[in-house]
Design a protein around this nucleic acid. Sequence first.
RNA 1: GACGCGGGUCAGGCAGCCGCGGACCGGUUCGUCCGGUCCGAGGAAAGUCCGGACACCGAAGAGCAGGGUGCUGGCUAACGGCCAGGCGGGGAAACCCGACGGAAAGUGCCACAGAAACGACACAGCCUCCCGGAUCCUCGGGCGGCAACGGUGAAAAGGUGCGGUAAGAGCGCACCAGCGGUCCUGGUGACAGGCCGGCUGGGCAAACCCCACCCGGUGCAAGGCCAAGUCGGGGCGCCACGGGUUGCUCGCCCAGCCCCAGGUCGGCCGCAUGAGGCGCCCGGUGACGGGCGUCCCAGAGAGAUGGCUGCCCGCGACAGAAUCCGGCUUAUCGACCCGCUACGGAA
RNA 2: UGGGGGAUCGUCUAGCGGUAGGACGCCGGGUUCUGGCCCCGGUAGCGGGGGUUCGAAUCCUCCUCCCCCAG
Length: 130
Amino acid sequence: MHGAHSDGARWPRDRRGRITRSRDFDAVYRRGRSAASRHLVLYAFPREDAGDDPPRLGLSVSRRVGNAVERNRVKRVLREQFARIAPGLPAGVDFIVIARPGAAAYVEERGSAALGERLGELAARLAGAG
RNA sequence: GACGCGGGUCAGGCAGCCGCGGACCGGUUCGUCCGGUCCGAGGAAAGUCCGGACACCGAAGAGCAGGGUGCUGGCUAACGGCCAGGCGGGGAAACCCGACGGAAAGUGCCACAGAAACGACACAGCCUCCCGGAUCCUCGGGCGGCAACGGUGAAAAGGUGCGGUAAGAGCGCACCAGCGGUCCUGGUGACAGGCCGGCUGGGCAAACCCCACCCGGUGCAAGGCCAAGUCGGGGCGCCACGGGUUGCUCGCCCAGCCCCAGGUCGGCCGCAUGAGGCGCCCGGUGACGGGCGUCCCAGAGAGAUGGCUGCCCGCGACAGAAUCCGGCUUAUCGACCCGCUACGGAA
RNA sequence: UGGGGGAUCGUCUAGCGGUAGGACGCCGGGUUCUGGCCCCGGUAGCGGGGGUUCGAAUCCUCCUCCCCCAG
């Protein structure tokens, strides 16, 4: 992957650190690389015009994951854990995390830190392959 | 005290640090960048089952079709909701439940069983009289009378008792049930009570239907504005047929229609002061209405409430606003308050 | 968020007030030297709760699940 690591530059948790445009989501799905595990799928795609901007996060949590309360909890956990691993991620890359059915129960049983470890493993796999 | 019934309130709390969304104020190297203050999910926010507001569409036309509601009176913007009452059912009671108009307007259905299932007229039977055998009981046939009794069924032609008769039958009488009445009384009314009459047959309208009342269609991804952009693109086709107009008909509108190709996946408004919450007073049995005072209480746009720590208790259920409001229904660990019924104890 | 459709044996379906039927599959038997084809028999089902009716897969109502459409 091109681009420098963001190296300690904090990932902004507000809307600047999110993918908001529908076409950005399409670009990551269409042209990005992916890795998947039991409860999560991770897509990554380096933007050409990004430069040293921090990485951005997009979330996809479908109705099959659970009801609205459970989906919001999963999204909060994923944002929190993404902020934890963000300093080790390359700058200028868009990431999309898809939660699979069972992710809510996994957080319930193992805790949110465990799900963060699974997310870190997927990110490491993409970095190693690139 | 413990059981039950009805109504209502709450939905872990407090403190610290780091974060998230919005509004306002100040700064601004004008980058939604920094700082501060305030606010920030529910009783069901849910299911989307009803009703409205709001918006657009149609000549903001008509009729039909279709759909909904269904005891009475009221409340309401409206409702399939709520309140009060009536009737029916359940419970020992407090109380709870009920799609609760019409079957003498018509059509249809009532399987199996049964003699008979909708105008049945009698399958087994009962009885007078006549004829024959017999002549004490009885048997066969015939003219008639009858529907009590038998079995079937969800349902069988009012029920019980007495009289009556050849046997019987509301045939007569008493009570009860049901029906009818231009009748009387109370009530706005549903209805209740009384009086009189005759003597009496069903069920299903959550079957079609009839009657009364209500309903135009689509839905905030409605709709409006701005920016950007293809394109005043191509084609052998159909051309008075066709297309649009609400499901149909009439009526109305269009000069084109169809196919291919292309564009649209940006922003702002709508978007939160409302049939609003709370308190007091007045009217009303009540739902509710009126007056005065006071408060501003989420507003996102890949979608905001979390993480860590400490203390307390019983370790906290169902569950997250997306245009707004009134209901209904469904899910839900529990805590507290008020009133009431019957039971036990004490005074 | 709004709108629409559906649920019947393991699978695909018919039935629209009184009997749940068909095809494929599965099981057992027959036929054949063996297997297939074929023949005979069987296994099984109305998504759940409540209501209307004498009687409900069917009619009404409330839930659950699945699918489709509109950016």
